[in-house]
C-alpha cells in the first residue's frame, strides 16, 4: 500500500529524526519511571546476572593466570654427549634458541648443578662432603613459549631438539606434563561449558523479566497498533528501555564487583596477613570490564527483542 494521501489531513509539521529519537527516549524514560517496581526488578536481575558472570570470569582469569605460572615450570633439560668448549657451547645455544618454541635458554654448569643439588639437601649437606665439584653433568635448560606448552608441542619440540648435533639425553618430565595439560584442558572445557550455560540462563531470565514489562503494557501496545502505529514505532521505546536498563544494570554490577574485590583484598590483608602483590591475584582486565558494560546493554536489547517477538502486534 502506498503512503496515504495527506490532502484531507489537517496540516501539521512532522518530527525529524532527532526529535523522533528524543520522543522515543522520552517515552522510554517515562515508562521506566512509571513502572518503577518492574524497572527495579529488571535492573537488579541484569545486575545479578552480570555479577555472577563477572565473578565467574574473575575466577577463570585467575585460574588461567595460575596455570600460566605453573606452565612456566615445564622446562626441557638437555644433556651433552661430550664436554663442550665455550665456542661449541655458544653455537649450540644459538641453534637451540633458533628452534621454534624456545623462549629462553640457560646453561647450567657443573658447579651450578651441584649447588642446586646441595640446596635441595637442606640440613644434610654433609652427605656431599668430599664429593668432586664436577660429579654432576652440565646441562641446558630450555623454557618454552606459551603456545608450545602443550603435550604434543613439547613432544615435537624434543624431537627437533634431539636432532641437534651434540645433544644427548633430554628430560622433560613427560608424565607430569601430560597430567598437567590434561587437567588444564579439562578445566578450560568445563569453564567454557559453565560460561555458556550461564549466558543462556541469564538471557532467558532477563528476557522473561522484560516480558513482564511488556505484559504490563499489553493494552497500550494494542491501542498503539489500532491507531496506526508502525511496528517500529511500537518497539523503539522498549528497545531503548531495554538498553537503558542493561546499561544501569551492568554499571551497578561493575561497581559492586570492583567494590567487592578491593574490600575483600583489604580485609584479607588485615586478617590473614595476606600479601595481594605476592598472591598473584588478578582483577579483570579493562577489556573485560568494557565487554561487561557492552554486554549488559546487549543483554537488555536482546532481552527486549526476544520478548517483543512473542507480541507480534496486529
Amino acid at each position: 500500500m502506498s503512503r496515504p494521501r495527506h490532502n484531507l489531513r489537517p496540516h501539521a509539521s512532522t518530527m525529524g529524526h532527532w526529535s523522533r529519537f528524543c520522543y522515543f527516549a522520552g517515552k522510554a524514560w517515562a515508562n521506566l519511571i512509571g513502572n518503577k517496581l518492574v524497572t527495579i526488578l529488571t535492573v537488579f536481575t541484569i545486575t545479578l546476572a552480570l555479577l555472577i558472570i563477572s565473578l565467574f570470569l574473575l575466577f577463570y582469569v585467575n585460574l588461567e593466570g595460575t596455570v600460566e605460572q605453573w606452565s612456566r615450570k615445564v622446562v626441557v633439560t638437555a644433556y651433552f654427549d661430550n664436554e663442550l668448549s665455550p665456542q661449541e657451547l655458544g653455537a649450540l645455544k644459538n641453534r637451540i634458541a633458533a628452534l621454534p618454541g624456545t623462549e629462553s635458554v640457560k646453561y647450567i654448569a657443573k658447579d651450578e648443578a651441584l649447588k642446586r643439588f646441595r640446596s635441595r639437601l637442606k640440613g644434610q649437606e654433609a652427605l656431599l662432603e668430599g664429593v668432586a665439584p664436577d660429579v654432576l653433568p652440565a646441562s641446558i635448560e630450555i623454557s618454552l613459549k606459551k603456545q608450545f606448552r602443550s603435550v604434543d608441542s613439547v613432544t615435537g619440540f624434543v624431537v627437533g631438539l634431539k636432532r641437534i648435533q651434540g645433544i644427548g639425553e633430554v628430560q622433560y618430565g613427560e608424565e607430569w606434563v601430560r597430567k598437567f595439560f590434561t587437567f588444564f584442558q579439562f578445566l578450560r572445557v568445563l569453564g567454557i561449558l559453565i560460561g555458556s550455560f550461564l549466558i543462556l540462563a541469564v538471557l532467558f531470565i532477563v528476557s522473561n523479566t522484560i516480558k513482564l514489562t511488556i505484559l504490563a503494557r499489553k493494552e497500550e501496545l494494542e491501542i498503539l497498533s489500532l491507531v496506526g502505529a508502525t511496528p517500529f514505532f511500537i518497539k523503539a521505546p522498549f528497545l531503548i528501555e531495554g538498553m537503558l536498563q542493561g546499561a544501569v544494570g551492568s554499571l551497578l554490577a561493575v561497581i559492586l564487583l570492583v567494590g567487592g574485590y578491593y574490600t575483600f583484598l583489604a580485609q584479607a590483608v588485615n586478617f590473614l596477613s595476606f600479601n595481594p602483590a605476592e598472591s598473584g591475584l588478578i582483577f579483570l582486565p579493562t577489556e573485560y570490564i568494557v565487554a561487561l558494560l557492552l554486554g549488559g546493554i546487549m543483554l537488555g536489547l536482546i532481552g527486549s527483542l526476544a520478548s517483543l517477538k512473542k507480541f507480534a502486534t496486529t
Partner: peptide, 23 residues
Amino acid sequence: MTRHQIPFLRRNIGVVFQDFKLL
C-alpha cells in the same frame, strides 16, 4: 495487506471501540 501496511490503513480510520480501550 502485510503488517507493515496495516498501520497506514488505520491512520485513515478512526474507531470508537465498544469497550473504549482507554488507557
